[in-house]
């Protein structure tokens, strides 16, 4: 347990020591989105009856911050350690595969959730947002961050260079997040895109999370949480298998 706890703590320290970059910067980015989109679209868009567009946007932006930062933390930490070579410090000790995985996973989830909470708290200065079912919101945030943190571990193990990781980020993570309904309800999309969105796991994370605020969503929160949780377990098993095999870590 001490081994796991130490690695988790090390990962936690790593992003806290540069919190301006890892926490403050993403919160600011989300707020800029909120200000710009809210001002330009408030009069024209009503997604749910009785919900102002600005309010609609806040959970989406908060969740996007959770997901992107969870992914960024585990992936960049692992890739940097591999590039600088200091990954040997965690490869030499008797940490079990599970401890290794859980430490990177939980630290990344923690960063995602801290940034998400920051975005949400800061938004409350500008916007009134209802909070109908906090537990639904919390459950989706936690499991959703877990999915992205595990994906980050995979991407970090896979990437040997900065550009490989940014390709992962720009060509997979970013499009999936943007096309998941952060800025709109997928019901406003043409039917073909609606169908596509239903194959995007991030759509369920955002939709289920949003249900926690407005009590209404595009699909049932039970369906969302089932899909997100299944994705989480599938990805975790895959990641553990990769770590056990030594793929790109002990080559």
């Amino acid at each position: 347990m001490t081994g796991f706890y130490t690695l988790f703590y090390k990962e936690w320290l790593r992003f806290c020591k540069v919190s301006v970059q890892t926490i403050l910067a993403p919160v600011l980015t989300a707020l800029l989105y909120l200000l710009v989109f809210a001002h330009t679209l408030r009069e024209h868009v009503e997604v749910y009856p009785g919900v102002e567009y600005t309010a609609f946007l806040v959970p989406g932006l908060a969740m996007m911050a959770v997901l992107q930062n969870a992914f960024a933390n585990s992936s960049s930490s692992l890739m940097q350690s591999k590039m600088t070579g200091n990954i040997v410090f965690v490869l030499l000790p008797p940490l079990s595969h599970q401890e290794f995985f859980l430490a990177y996973l939980l630290a990344a989830m923690a960063r995602g959730l801290v940034v998400g909470a920051g975005v949400f708290a800061a938004s409350l200065w500008f916007v009134d947002v209802p909070f109908a079912h906090p537990l639904w919101a919390f459950a989706h945030a936690v499991v959703g961050s877990g999915v992205m943190a595990a994906l980050g571990v995979i991407a970090g193990i896979q990437s040997d260079k900065v550009d490989q990781l940014s390709a992962f980020q720009n060509f997979i993570i970013l499009p999936l997040t943007f096309l998941s309904g952060v800025f709109y309800s997928i019901h406003s999309l043409p039917p073909l895109w609606q169908t596509f969105s239903h194959f995007n796991p991030i759509f369920y994370m955002i939709d289920g999370f949003r249900y926690g605020f407005f009590g209404q969503a595009d699909v049932s929160p039970w369906l969302s949480i089932t899909i997100v949780t299944s994705s989480f377990f599938a990805l975790s098993l895959l990641t553990l298998w990769l770590i056990r095999s030594g793929y790109k870590l002990r080559h």
């Binding site: 347990m1 001490t2 081994g3 706890y5 130490t6 690695l7 703590y9 090390k10 410090f89 965690v90 000790p93 008797p94 940490l95």
Partner: peptide, 10 residues
């Protein structure tokens, strides 16, 4: 200290 922790030593 961190390296000790990885080996389970507090």
């Amino acid at each position: 200290r961190i390296q000790s922790g990885y080996y389970g030593i507090r």
